[in-house]
Amino acid sequence: MDIALWIKAAVMGVVEGLTEFLPISSTGHLILTASLLDFTGDKIKVFEIAIQTGAMLAVIWEYRVKLGRTVAGLGHDAVAQRFAFNVLIAFLPAVVFGLAFNAAIKEHLFHPLPVAMAFIVGALVILWVEKRHHRRYGELDLAGKRHARVETVDDMNALDALKVGLVQCLALIPGTSRSGATIIGAMVFGFSRKAATEFSFYLGIPTLMGAGAYSVYKYRSLLSVADLPLFAIGTVFAFFSALLCIRWLIRYVSTHDFVPFAWYRIVFGAVVILTAWGGWVEWRA
């Protein structure tokens, strides 16, 4: 029993849960955290993907009523059918592009410096989109509310879902942020922040649970029964930290924008680049 290894797994789980749904890149944070903890290797790369399941289980738990109602209404409820169809449409591009390019991306981009650059580029995109969003939807109506074209996830159509699914593919580049790509992309397409954030949650369920299952299956030769406690600890800590993050984020987006996250990304990316350039931290993939 290696307690130090279990503590590292718990830390990674917390990092995954706290960053998965924020537009700051959970993958980027996991790569950098693993480097600092000297928690690296092929098996750990599988671990990083597998523990995303814990964060997705937090979404299922938090939205169990909506998801249960959707499943129950698939046979007769048009709203439930449209919602499920939209999630499926948005999920498919990630499957196609992931299978086509994931191996090459892992070989060339899963390293701290490319991640840091993606942090900064992503931040600039967020700042631009938020400025655009404020200009377009910033005026209040007589009731004191802002109105986007898609106010709730039930207002979406199939084309909306496809466009969000395509921008989610940008998250294959580590440091971009899956939630950031889907939320900010959806806002460009006319979603409210709340609708964009909630659809990002829902879309993450098949996307990340599928990626986790595929990764474990593909690299099963690297794993053994002895690895189960390590993976379980990471998954459990990811679940509880993600649950806290989801509840906080939904309250946050009702009255705030994502500009602070953009500045955080710039500072974080700059710190990684400067420490690597100065030789103060030996970042490793």
Score class of each variant (00 low, 15 high):
His108Arg: 15
Val14Thr: 06
Leu67Thr: 01
His108Glu: 03
Glu62Lys: 14
Ile183Arg: 11
Asp155Gly: 05
Leu244Asn: 03
Gly68Leu: 03
Ser254Val: 11
Thr19Met: 01
Ser35Tyr: 07
Thr19Lys: 00
Ile120Lys: 06
Glu151Asn: 14
Asp2Gly: 08
Ala90Arg: 01
Glu139Asp: 08
Asp257Gly: 15
Lys194Tyr: 13
Leu88Asp: 00
Leu140Ala: 01
Arg251Met: 14
Arg69Asn: 14
Arg193Lys: 15
Pro206Met: 06
Leu274Lys: 11
His256Cys: 10
Leu159Cys: 09
Lys163Gly: 08
Val14Glu: 01
Phe261Trp: 13
Arg265Ile: 12
Ile89Arg: 02
Met117His: 05
Val267Trp: 01
Ala161Val: 02
Pro114Ile: 05
Ala90Trp: 00
Ala270Trp: 03
Val267Met: 00
Val259Cys: 03
Val225Cys: 01
Pro260Trp: 10
Thr53Asn: 01
Ile60Tyr: 00
Gly75Ser: 06
Ala186Asn: 03
Gly279Gln: 11
Ile7Trp: 13
Asp38Thr: 13
Gly54Tyr: 03
Val125Asp: 01
Ser177Phe: 11
Leu162Lys: 03
Phe239Ala: 09
Ala4His: 09
Ser221Ala: 15
Trp61Arg: 06
Gly185Pro: 04
Thr182Phe: 02
Phe39Leu: 11
Leu37Pro: 07
Ala4Met: 11
Ala276Val: 11
Leu159Asp: 08
Met209Lys: 03
Phe240Glu: 06
Glu139Thr: 11
Phe191Tyr: 05
Thr19Gln: 00
Lys131Gly: 15
Lys194Thr: 15
Arg178Trp: 10
Asp160Asn: 15
Val46Ala: 14
Thr53Tyr: 00
Asp42Arg: 15
Tyr252Asp: 07
Phe199Arg: 02
Leu170Gln: 05
Leu36Asp: 05
Lys66Ala: 06
His256Gln: 15
Trp263Gln: 12
Phe85Val: 06
Phe201His: 05
Met56Gln: 14
Trp6Phe: 14
Lys145Gly: 02
Gly138Thr: 02
Ala100Lys: 06
His111Gln: 13
Arg220Cys: 06
Ala211Thr: 09
